[in-house]
Design a protein around this nucleic acid. Sequence first.
DNA 1: CTATAATCGAGACGGTACGTCACGTCTTTTC
DNA 2: GAAAAGACGTGACGTACCGTCTCGATTATAG
Lengths: 200, 200, 200, 200
Amino acid sequence: MSAASSLPPRAHSGNRRDEAARLAVLHAADDLLVEHGFGALTVESIARRAGVAKQTIYRWWSSKVEILLDVLIEDSDKRFPVPTQERPTADDIRRYLRAFARFLTRDPAGRVLLALLAEAQHHAATAATLHERYLDPRRAAERALLARATAAGEIAPDLAPDATMDALVGPIVYRAMTGSTIPRALVDTLVTDLLKPPSH
Amino acid sequence: MSAASSLPPRAHSGNRRDEAARLAVLHAADDLLVEHGFGALTVESIARRAGVAKQTIYRWWSSKVEILLDVLIEDSDKRFPVPTQERPTADDIRRYLRAFARFLTRDPAGRVLLALLAEAQHHAATAATLHERYLDPRRAAERALLARATAAGEIAPDLAPDATMDALVGPIVYRAMTGSTIPRALVDTLVTDLLKPPSH
Amino acid sequence: MSAASSLPPRAHSGNRRDEAARLAVLHAADDLLVEHGFGALTVESIARRAGVAKQTIYRWWSSKVEILLDVLIEDSDKRFPVPTQERPTADDIRRYLRAFARFLTRDPAGRVLLALLAEAQHHAATAATLHERYLDPRRAAERALLARATAAGEIAPDLAPDATMDALVGPIVYRAMTGSTIPRALVDTLVTDLLKPPSH
Amino acid sequence: MSAASSLPPRAHSGNRRDEAARLAVLHAADDLLVEHGFGALTVESIARRAGVAKQTIYRWWSSKVEILLDVLIEDSDKRFPVPTQERPTADDIRRYLRAFARFLTRDPAGRVLLALLAEAQHHAATAATLHERYLDPRRAAERALLARATAAGEIAPDLAPDATMDALVGPIVYRAMTGSTIPRALVDTLVTDLLKPPSH
DNA sequence: CTATAATCGAGACGGTACGTCACGTCTTTTC
DNA sequence: GAAAAGACGTGACGTACCGTCTCGATTATAG
């Protein structure tokens, strides 16, 4: 996500979509976000940096938010996939949350998620797309994770699945948003207190 | 925070700062944020709505973020002040968190906080001011609240004070940001599980 | 120079400079100057009148002075070209000066020259461009005219060519600037007295 | 007209008009015109430079043009008064024109006249005041001068008095406006050719 | 010997225009 | 057809002055 943008002019690809242009745009968007922040991320600056015409961007993406969503989706499944074990334990969930915390605070793509969550506060349309393409699918997988762990008797949360996930994820996101680190103890305590291994 | 902006031309106040203009700007900013969202909130639109010259805004505020901070600070102490009892109980803290949840999801000024938290993701300078003028002072009061409750033997949190507060506040903010409601059970469970009345 | 500005939205011309926009700007500038004077001639008003974006003006002209210079240059060669006869007579020169007087006092484009001469008193940069693009080229042609007439034995001015031209042109410009008419007798007397047909 | 503006704050003068403030304004206007040109001459810059409140300027002058007119009138009678001899000769007139030429090209106050003539092209109101307070009174005196010289048999101009004066003055003004010097020969030739000593 | 009244400096105010930036749309030309 | 190039109308940015308007301090004259 950061190879120096190809400056020698790429050859046109004729009448099919140009994969090189697509990647150049995604990389440029990510790089600019990390280097100069969302405020400096304009369609014109992406086009400039990617060596691509503005029209090429508008042909394939309806806004810079869609570009960032593409970046986010491509990256976040690699960095912290939702666990898929048949019988997940509280420990698996703890590891997942730690990966999420690491992603948010250390990975450039984590900045993308924070930027999109932020932008969703500013524009209803962004909120809608972010839910549809990212938050809702992930949440569905997370709910399934909790369901399998509960069914397996590994955890016994008091709250409904969504509320449980928000109680776990919320503090991580909030600390990332306010510029704090996320100490191990925080994740550990949340998992211990909220997922409550069943007393047998 | 929404009375129709005074349309009969205000009389100039001469040499001193014009309090009517100051209020008109704060109200206009708040109204526009609620009505059309942060994306449509421009200095020009605030000036138009407030019946005020752009220069008057720039004379007193360095950006629209500072205007919103003024709105937020003036309002949020009224709506959910940090409790000041000598010996606060877990119940007092629960009530405080519920007031916060109500503020975020129902009060126009709550939108202001979400918008500023969001904007802080986009601009480092916004993050700095938001911390300095709002988050840090409130957090200091909240830390003191936890310290008094702990000293009084009413609660016994496992985590450090800041982490405890983030664990309580994070889920509320996150649900507000993702457009969810905040059920009573969520706040109750967080308080019960994280503040742990001491076993005697 | 005054056809009502095309109000139905012009079609963009894409990649190349839009000639219709160029003409709309020149006409708008000229019309506004004549109708409301130089004081009311702002880039914004030109843009409004021409139905053109401000940026389009700034893309092609560095100031409203350059716009007026374009208007002046395009027009003044049509209205009173410097005579090009091989052997010009004093009468040819008199006719030329009368055309100039008519241009200054009756032609809208004449207002443009007066405005630019005026603006040149206010800004050194304007003075430089006005000389370079208008006054100097015209003066060169006028010097050549005098030279040919002198060589042909038609006139015998006492003064150097530049001073002669200024002595002829100065009174015309000055009367135009002070709002006076320019009587035939004035031009006739200047030509007679200053160009002195040679005694044979 | 250029003594360094009094920087130590002047004492108020109480009830009466403050002569020191009046002079500070006139000097500041003249200095700024000479140093930075008419374009940089704003009421605010004059007030700043003169150490005077804007309101003080607006109390006594209706515009910066009126300020400059005050400067011009105070100065130009000193530098090149219209000759008042009973029987003026062509030589007296030549000396007067040379003083005028020197005033325009060398004297700071000469810049003021050129600036006002220029501004008169931009605003009709300026043209009116300039005529009324400066050009017309001077021209009346000049007409009288020509009349006395003609009556005395010293000159015999072909043209009407106004046209004669414009024929003499026009070239001088025009050369000053176009940044040229005014050679002695030009003035001499104009006087000789246009005032025509009567043949006896 | 006080009031009173006009002047002064300061500067806030509602405006208009400045020149710049990015938006999203459009067209032309090249591959 | 897709792509690079870039002109176009739109509209917000933050700044400079405009001319008007209080203010509080200052000071000569009138009661």
